[in-house]
Each structure stands twice: as C-alpha cells, then as structure tokens.
C-alpha cells in the first residue's frame, strides 16, 4: 500500500473512499431528483432490471445528478409494465409507463435542464 506522507495524500484517500461511502453516511441527498423504477414481479418480468441498470449507467455517463432506486408497485399499480416515477426536489412527480431505453433517454435528458 502506498504510504501517506502529506496532508494531500490523506485528502486523496479520503475523497476516493468517501465517494463510495457517501450514501452510507449522508443518506439520500434531498436536493436531487429521484428516479424510482418499479421492480415488482411484473416489472422484473418485463425487463425493469435492465432499464434500472440503464438508468444507472446513463446518469453516470451523462453526469446527471440523480438518485436512481428501486421500488415496488408504484401508486395503485394500474400502470404497466415498466413504470418509472420521477420526483423532483420540490415534491412534484411524474409517472412514465412502458419505459424502454428510448423513453429512459428522454427522461434523463429532461433532467439535464
């Protein structure tokens, strides 16, 4: 292991490791939009896991600051089959149905602005 010889070395380790622990220490950042993907049985069957992974990759790639997380049935469960709910920090939310990669891109791009 590399020796830590200066305050800058220490700071570098801190920043690198803290990034991996941020969610553990701080919990959710309430100032970020939240993207919830419904992952109940039907959602998973219809490929929600793939869409979930796609959201994670794309928000990273496009450097969009958002919390991507899984949830169970969204609202009353009438929407089918891959459902995504986006909640903005001000509390406003919108539900998208039949989400595929194309819709996912549109959702991510809408958060860019």
């Amino acid at each position: 292991m590399a020796q830590i010889k200066t305050l800058a070395d220490l700071q570098a380790v801190k920043e690198r490791v803290y990034a991996t622990m941020k969610t553990r220490v701080e919990g959710f950042d309430k100032n970020l939009p939240q993207i919830r993907i419904a992952m109940a049985t039907i959602g998973i069957q219809a490929g929600a896991k793939e869409i979930y992974d796609y959201f994670i990759d794309q928000t990273d790639a496009k450097q969009i600051k958002a919390i991507v997380m899984q949830t169970s049935v969204i609202d009353d469960g009438n929407q089918q089959p891959v459902v995504v709910k986006v909640t903005m920090p001000d509390g406003e939310s919108k539900i998208y149905e039949n989400v595929d990669k194309k819709t996912a891109d549109a959702i991510i791009d809408s958060l860019k602005a």
Partner: peptide
C-alpha cells in the same frame, strides 16, 4: 476511517 476525517 480516513474517509471520515481519520488521521486528519
């Protein structure tokens, strides 16, 4: 430990 300001 370092990530939470350890050894600082």
């Amino acid at each position: 430990y370092i990530a939470l300001d350890g050894y600082k």
